[in-house]
Nucleic acid binder design. Structure first.
Lengths: 186, 186
DNA sequence: GTCTATACTACGATAGAC
DNA sequence: GTCTATCGTAGTATAGAC
């Protein structure tokens, strides 16, 4: 072969990373194969040496993103880590930079509309994340509720037009989650 | 004119309703003008007698949907109404029928990527909704947090592959919101 | 593995007949 | 207001040269 042994792997990885950014920023369905390849300096035709279809790329993006989310947000290291994660997740910077943020608020609706195999992948990683939080919070229910609230707060904040209101939404969720964690459990 | 006085208005209304269903089900960007018009029995070319562009249609859909959401979810009638809304919102039926459900979980990411004028529209109606809930809950912060959690729970549940897990997510948010409402406020 | 070229379909939008 | 026809572009995917 005219290319080094791991050249393909490197190109594939670059494509995955670049495409994930484009998808989270502009939506996966709105960016074309040609644009995705041009973004890493290649032509559209070369795409199919790495993925058999655009949908297969999406499946790989989802898997890669959610595995990264688990690494970043997994709260195994205890309650301090969890609170740091919450602060970072519910930050204005996260609202404004969807391209480098969590895939769940940015691609949630598109994942929901995907076929079963992608949703199974998503479920796998989401469950690991929930279990990790449930261990720290000592509540399955609270872990699901807080995860949902974090996603919702970002979707909500990103819809709003004014930065002050975005801050209010983020702060509200952060404060109320704080009360839920601190408050007495039944 | 060859058509009755309110024929245009009726057609426009039919188009808005049908397009909102398509958008919530499949995403607005993935459905074409031709498909939207065929869905109400008209040809693609007739679209531009009602809207000057596809984006203008999206703006009208967002306004219409969020006005309806305020009508349905506005909690002015007191705490009982709010609890009924929560039960209905956080139901499996709502998860499974995005096309007839709330636009915020289904179109949130696309609204977030829209231009400022659409986000201002969204902000307007979302604020009215939040104010309505804040009045009943007697807390601005809790109103924002619960609204966010409802949206997030639906995005989350719709990503999951198994119905049982979807139920768990919905039930968790419902239960935790119940505790937040019942619990002592600082 | 990547390139150019291309087939085929779909898109948003416009023009002119009725 | 709606139709058919069409323009120009962009989409996914494939074929063959290098």
């Amino acid at each position: 072969m005219r290319y080094s042994a791991n050249h393909k792997e490197e190109t594939r990885e670059k494509l995955l990373q670049s495409s994930a950014i484009s998808a989270k920023k502009s939506g996966f369905s709105t960016v074309g194969v040609d644009g995705l390849m041009k973004a890493i300096g290649l032509s559209g035709g070369a795409f199919y040496s790495h993925f058999s279809s655009k949908d297969e790329l999406f499946a790989s993006i989802v898997e890669r993103e959610l595995r990264q989310s688990l690494e970043r947000l997994g709260a195994d290291q205890g309650r301090e880590k969890l609170e740091r994660c919450l602060k970072q997740y519910l930050s204005l910077s996260h609202v404004e930079h969807a391209e480098s943020g969590c895939a769940l608020p940015a691609l949630g609706a598109e994942i929901a509309r995907s076929d079963m195999s992608i949703r199974r992948q998503a479920e796998h990683w989401i469950c690991l994340l929930q279990e990790s939080w449930a261990q720290v919070l000592e509540s399955e229910s609270l872990a699901w509720a807080i995860l949902s609230q974090c996603i919702g707060a970002l979707v909500m904040a990103r819809m709003l037009a004014t930065e002050e209101l975005q801050r209010t939404v983020l702060r509200s969720s952060y404060d109320e989650i704080g009360r839920q964690i601190a408050g007495p459990r039944i």
